[in-house]
């Protein structure tokens, strides 16, 4: 039986020559590129430098045993992504269970059945491919840390309560800008604008979780919590305004209309998690704090200030920030007045 598969780079770590021979041969017959290591220490060195797609790891070995190699790999953010299949004798099942619990991808008992070997290797490679694709996808809208966190904890619909800062940003009167140029020009303009804004957000630890038309929503401090989420969100907003100045200079030099944005930020507790269905879900935040941030962003039109924040966000800022008290505002549909502050750039 031949299961077709894409060639991958595999490492076999086994102190037993016969095992290495059989495993290598069986996997080479599948066009995989196979390297071997004779003990755990050599194996770990090769794993660190060899960019392998998968490792077959023996348990009982001199120098460093398979268990120690596995632990070292799982501790390393980069190496953790390489699937490891433990290979062991039937009578070492206790050790194998321990390895799988610790995070090994799968296991095979020796003598290895070649059909089972191919099936398990291919299944693990396929899973890795899917994970790599997910990781790539995540990284297009999240920071590396967030992507890793999502991969580690997995998708689960349903949220948890977090303390974070939410940022909303919108382009002022984009509709009239869009009407004055071709659709292709509008999309180009938006894409250039978003790539600058995304950079400002991601560089400050934020995650962009929604883009609607010319508006965007970003969260700071979730899914990975960090203490200074309020300051980071304001820092990102100031960077966004700074980037926009450069962007506008370019627009001006091309004889185009400049764009103006409004940014609103609120901090506090919110529910964060995946919303949608199992097949299509996005990471988002909901709750009063989120609504307030959105209202504050809308209020920038009236206040004629580009960056407004709530009191919780202000309290998270060091004194070096120039903040102006705009008084209390009662938003439509809300009972309590909210203190609004303008941040100067």
């Amino acid at each position: 039986m031949v299961i077709s598969s894409e060639p991958a780079r595999l490492l076999i770590v086994d102190d037993n020559k016969i095992n290495r021979m059989i495993l290598s041969r069986t996997l080479e017959q599948q066009n995989h590129i196979v390297e071997t290591a004779n003990d755990g220490k050599e194996g770990l060195e090769k794993i660190r430098t060899g960019s392998f797609d998968l490792v077959l790891l023996d348990i009982e070995m001199p120098e460093m045993n398979g268990f120690e190699v596995l632990e070292a790999c799982l501790k390393d953010v980069e190496l953790r992504q390489i699937p490891i299949i433990m290979t062991s004798a039937m009578d070492e099942l206790d050790a194998v269970v321990k390895c799988v619990e610790l995070g090994a991808e799968d296991y095979l008992t020796k003598p290895v059945n070649p059909i089972l070997l191919r099936a398990r290797v291919n299944a693990s490679l396929e899973k890795k491919r899917l994970r790599d694709e997910q990781r790539k996808l995540f990284r297009t809208f999240a920071t590396k840390e967030v992507a890793e966190e999502l991969l580690r904890t997995g998708f689960s619909l349903g949220g948890k309560q977090v303390i974070a800062s939410v940022l909303f940003a919108d382009i002022r009167s984009f509709t009239s800008i869009a009407e004055s140029q071709t659709p292709a020009e509008s999309i180009d303009l938006l894409n250039e604008y978003f790539s600058l804004m995304f950079d400002a957000i991601i560089n400050n630890g934020g995650t962009v979780n929604q883009v609607i038309g010319d508006g965007l929503m970003a969260v700071f401090g979730a899914p990975i919590f960090f203490e200074d989420h309020a300051e980071k969100s304001v820092r990102a907003a100031l960077d966004m305004l700074e980037q926009l100045k450069v962007f506008n200079k370019n627009l001006l030099s091309q004889g185009k209309n400049q764009i103006h944005i409004g940014i609103g930020i609120a901090s506090g507790t919110m529910v964060a998690g995946y919303t949608g269905t199992q097949s299509r879900a996005i990471y988002t935040c909901i709750g009063d704090t989120v609504n307030i941030a959105s209202r504050i962003e809308e209020y920038t039109k009236e206040a004629l200030r580009p960056l407004l924040i709530d009191n919780h966000t202000r309290l998270g800022l060091p004194e070096s920030y120039q903040v102006e008290d705009l008084g209390k505002i009662v938003f439509k549909g809300k009972h309590n007045a909210i203190k609004i502050f303008a941040v100067s750039d």
Binding site: N16, I18, N19, A89, K110
Partner: peptide
């Protein structure tokens, strides 16, 4: 090692 190879 002997056990493992004999089993193979």
């Amino acid at each position: 090692t002997v056990k493992s190879n004999a089993a193979t």
